[in-house]
Amino acid sequence: MSQVVPEADLFEVREPDTQAIPFVYSSPHSGRRYPPAFLEQSKLDAAAIRRSEDHFVDELFGAAPDLGAPLLLAHFPRAYVDVNREPYELDPRMFDGALPPFANSHSLRVAGGLGTIPRIVAENMDIYSRRLPVNEAMTRIETVYKPYHMRLRKLIARTHARFGHGILIDCHSMPGNIRLSGSGLRPDFIIGDRYGTSASADLSRAAMEFLEDQGFTTVRNKPYAGGFITEHYGRPARGLHALQIEVNRSLYVDEATLEKKRDFDELKGAVTTLMQRMAEFAEHFAGPASLAAE
């Protein structure tokens, strides 16, 4: 059975003294506190189980509170529960017992082993040596997944009420071997807006411009257009915008040792510059109508 732990051990919100900008930052995959009971269930060693982390992304975007925006960050690992999925994207082959009828067992993410309760970590390494009880999945969803999303919804609602609009930045990292299909281009950053449905295209273009001004290679939506969080919370017609930002891991971490590179602080400074310029850019908008999606 999963160990039920206090909410403060699952995630935290780093708040500014006063929220001064209409942004909420979320880092759902950078958690690195592995429950002992989970490690006992896994057949992977302590290094391999970490392969699906968004390593140190919470630190890369750590300046958010200093700039006037809250930062919600997970402490639980993605391999344990993935909150960037629907609440019940579950693979019946992983569990003993019948899944509830409302479970989505046929999504591409489930087929790939990356559902709400993942079957694999990166590089197709199976996490478990045997099936889990169905109530294990339900417990994780009730005690980890739902509280995280409840807190995220509250932050977005508060921001929307305060400013009349809100911008969620969902922060992630990607493997260093990602290449753009057909070109071989290795992007440093990928900006995802669900092909214009989760955020104003102007916001996406601005983010790309601010990164390219610093010498980075950027692309939009390919191969990562945004996951459940971006899709679920982005409602441009209501003045709610959600962008996913993927950072190429090889820029700042040794992917073999999972240790920071010497130029980590330099990249963090570049990300902070992006955040500052995005905040300045948002000041030009009067409200929801001016941020309407194309």
Results as ranks from 00 to 15, higher is better:
231 E>T: 14
236 P>A: 08
230 T>M: 07
245 I>Q: 00
257 T>F: 09
234 G>S: 06
246 E>C: 01
238 R>H: 14
234 G>C: 04
244 Q>M: 05
254 D>I: 13
241 H>S: 03
233 Y>S: 00
248 N>W: 07
250 S>Y: 06
234 G>I: 06
263 D>T: 13
249 R>C: 03
240 L>T: 06
251 L>V: 04
245 I>G: 02
255 E>R: 06
237 A>N: 12
243 L>K: 00
251 L>M: 10
252 Y>T: 01
250 S>V: 09
237 A>W: 10
257 T>R: 13
255 E>G: 06
239 G>K: 05
244 Q>R: 04
246 E>P: 02
238 R>Y: 11
247 V>S: 00
242 A>F: 04
250 S>F: 07
246 E>R: 03
258 L>Y: 09
257 T>W: 09
234 G>N: 04
245 I>N: 00
231 E>K: 14
255 E>P: 08
232 H>E: 14
235 R>I: 11
251 L>Y: 03
253 V>K: 03
262 R>P: 07
255 E>C: 09
251 L>K: 01
231 E>Q: 15
263 D>F: 11
230 T>H: 07
262 R>W: 06
257 T>E: 14
244 Q>F: 01
235 R>H: 13
244 Q>C: 03
236 P>C: 10
233 Y>C: 01
233 Y>M: 02
238 R>C: 09
245 I>A: 00
260 K>L: 12
252 Y>W: 04
260 K>N: 13
260 K>Q: 14
262 R>C: 05
255 E>M: 10
255 E>I: 11
242 A>Q: 01
249 R>S: 04
243 L>I: 09
251 L>C: 02
254 D>V: 14
251 L>H: 02
236 P>D: 09
256 A>L: 14
258 L>W: 02
263 D>Q: 14
230 T>C: 13
235 R>E: 10
256 A>S: 14
236 P>M: 10
240 L>S: 02
241 H>G: 01
262 R>N: 12
247 V>L: 05
230 T>A: 11
261 K>M: 13
245 I>P: 01
247 V>Q: 02
235 R>T: 10
235 R>P: 02
241 H>V: 03
238 R>D: 15
241 H>F: 04
232 H>K: 14
263 D>I: 07
256 A>K: 14
259 E>H: 14
241 H>M: 03
244 Q>S: 06
255 E>N: 09
231 E>V: 10
238 R>L: 15
